[in-house]
Design a protein around this nucleic acid. Structure first.
Lengths: 183, 183
DNA sequence: TCGTATTGCTTGAAGTATCAAGTTCCCTGT
DNA sequence: ACAGGGAACTTGATACTTCAAGCAATACGA
């Protein structure tokens, strides 16, 4: 059976190549499997690595750090909840919980939107800014060490382009329940 | 401030290039930032996508599926817990919880190791195998659609190579608390 | 054959994620 | 002016992850 990140072992067709009939699933070739596994291993290990790094140095997971980053880049250091969720690629629900936690830390503050009473702004506080300032160098270093220091410029370019294609293929369009932009 | 996945906005140095002194952090260039963001977006979106796909079709998250895959590839469809944890790139603790859940589903069974009384085998049950058989085609299709169908062979090759380098840089060596192979 | 360190795995608590509702407010058409 | 539908955000329950201990068995040196 070929299982997307599993070499053959139980199916009769031998592992790579396409299966028999016209409608059978197109299993991954050996080459594709190696690529896919490398992809998963690298992303898993890297996410874990950065999560631990930030948990240790900043007391928050990688994605929470990403939220602060989005805010610091935004005009007046604030963003509507939905906008922030879109930029960070997470659900509104997740964001609500996350901001609640960041608020408890004093790094973010909520503010009502004057023009839309349903709306909320997430605002980066000075303390939040301070954390970012203190932690960013270490984080950049970690990213650099794990990624950029190991790849040639050509590899970096190729990686960036491939990732862009993948991201675009998975993005927005269509409407849906809670993640319109993920469908 | 450059924040690894944040364009400049608050630091005086202008965003790209290196900072002043000798020991200052080496911020990411604009090009590097684009790469890094594409990387994060793609991996985030893809993980979410596959998680939902498998949650919907198989009632389990992507990583649990990966555990079953490891088992089906192993001789006699069984693996020692530690070995399984290493292959799946997760902690033993996480694996213990995960296997408990898979056991409850009837997809995996635990078995004592005869030669080491501390040891446990995780064994894929027939039902577990059945789930894999039923779900694998859809999962492969999802991976193909998100990744391989969108990239040229050259891009796939480059991606695989870059990911391999990254994964290798983050892997084993040294001893540590719970994740010796992650340090 | 003890004693100690190490290995293999599990547990419980606390943190985070996901899903399905739920609330309030906005917008459109009538 | 108001009904209906949709949008913005939150909430609570359940599932999953992490971290720090913890237990039992093995390995090893004295």
């Amino acid at each position: 059976m070929n299982t997307a990140s599993a070499s053959a072992s139980t199916d009769g067709s031998g592992g790579s190549g396409s299966s028999g009939g016209s409608g059978g699933p197109r299993w991954l070739s050996d080459e594709e499997q190696r690529t896919w596994r490398a992809f998963m291993h690298a992303t898993t290990l890297l996410e874990d690595h950065l999560d631990r790094q930030l948990q240790r140095d900043a007391g928050m997971p990688h994605i929470y750090y990403g939220l602060l980053v989005q805010l610091v880049e935004a005009p007046r250091r604030r963003l509507r909840m939905t906008e922030l969720a879109m930029r960070a690629k997470i659900t509104r629900s997740r964001l609500s919980h996350a901001v609640a936690r960041l608020e408890k830390n004093g790094w973010v503050r909520r503010e009502d939107c004057p023009s839309d009473k349903r709306g909320q702004f997430a605002v980066l506080t000075d303390e939040g800014y301070g954390v970012l300032e203190r932690v960013a160098p270490g984080h950049v270093a970690a990213v650099r060490q794990a990624l950029f220091d190991r790849l040639t410029p050509e590899q970096q370019k190729a990686l960036g382009e491939a990732m862009l294609v993948i991201a675009e293929g998975l993005q927005p369009e269509g409407a849906g329940a809670d993640l319109p932009w993920l469908r």
